[in-house]
Amino acid sequence: MTIENKKGWISWFNPFKYGTDRWMYALHRLTGIVLGVYLMFHVVETSRILEGAVTWNSLMVWLDYPFGPHFGPLILSAVLLAAVYHALNGLRLTIVENGLMLPKPYRPEYPYKPRSLRGLNNFLKIFLGFFMIAISAVGIIYIFTGAIL
């Protein structure tokens, strides 16, 4: 009897020992799941408006302070970060997965450093990373203070 040594879906979240792209893959999966779960709760939450203004208002108050002060905005900030990361990394993947901004086939030379994970792909990561920081900063300031820069 041989056994199947499958790593399984749990290995998606084990990016250790591999490169940046593997980390980004794990984060992309994680943020995708977070956003999916959030979306379901969001639909349930907003549907409560059908039960009238009193229920809605009390729900809004509870969502601001679900488990203590500032917990609601913290959850919202986490969702915002997940959304921004997922969107911008998705943009990068759309570009590179269509073979754009990737090198042409080359002759591998020792020590083998895969060029598809470096070069313009790295440039994209840094470029979109700046965008992510900027958008997240504006969003989080808005969530906590209600002010847009």
Partner: peptide
């Protein structure tokens, strides 16, 4: 493929399958 790049990272001959 979702381009995690792990294949290229571990390739002992630098083949870069992800590319």
């Amino acid at each position: 493929c979702h381009f995690s790049g792990a294949c290229s990272e571990v390739c002992p001959k630098g083949v870069d399958p992800a590319l």
